[in-house]
């Protein structure tokens, strides 16, 4: 299927065009922008990103690992230190805290890669170096007979040019 890429100057134009396209049933679209803009994100997909689940799982895993590691290792070869119990919670809380942050952070990075579909070996055919400049792109996958309609739709929403990319 061919892809139409509309090029925009403002995030508002993109958001309006995306809302309109989705309303007309063209939901196979990708928006490229040089920076994050809330209005675009709301128009494309208002649901919060799933990265948060990764952070939560990582953090919980970290705190459990922290206490498990310290307590098990202290009991595996028990030595009395400073008259404290073998499994001594207050000092181990420091380790558990650090591991919560560490695992949470690593899992958040994994979340970014998984949700953002990174690393990608090839860039999309609709992508252009202009989108890492100051312009925005809306790439819509359409069937042959809808090309004219989507072209007109993008232009009516302040797309300053529209390019057709072969599938």
């Amino acid at each position: 299927m061919p892809t139409l890429v509309g090029i925009f100057d403002t995030p508002n134009g993109v958001a309006e065009a995306v809302a309109r396209l989705k309303g007309r049933g063209f939901s196979k679209l990708e928006v490229y922008s040089p920076a994050p803009f809330e209005e675009i994100e709301l128009a494309v997909d208002p649901k919060p990103s799933k990265v948060r689940i990764f952070t939560l799982v990582g953090g919980l895993l970290g705190v459990v690992t922290g206490y498990a590691l310290t307590i098990w290792m202290s009991l595996d070869w028990p030595i009395v230190i400073g008259g404290k119990p073998f499994a001594s919670i207050p000092p181990y809380t420091v380790i558990a805290f650090e591991l919560t942050i560490l695992f949470g952070g690593i899992f958040t990075l994994i979340g970014l890669l998984a949700v953002g579909r990174l690393p990608a070996i090839k860039l999309d055919p609709g992508y252009s170096a202009r989108f890492s400049g100051e312009e925005f792109g809306v790439a819509v996958e359409v069937s042959e007979r809808d090309v004219a309609e989507v072209d007109g739709l993008l232009r009516s929403h302040a797309a300053k040019e529209v390019t057709l990319v072969a599938a």
């Binding site: 922008s33 919060p48 990103s49 979340g111 970014l112 949700v115 953002g116 990174l118």
Partner: peptide
Amino acid sequence: LGWQGTSRQWKAHNRTVLHLSGLATPL
């Protein structure tokens, strides 16, 4: 890593920066 600045990537990126900030502040 093949970053293209798609809205999905930016949204995940924003979340990631927010969460990393939340983790790094107490750290």
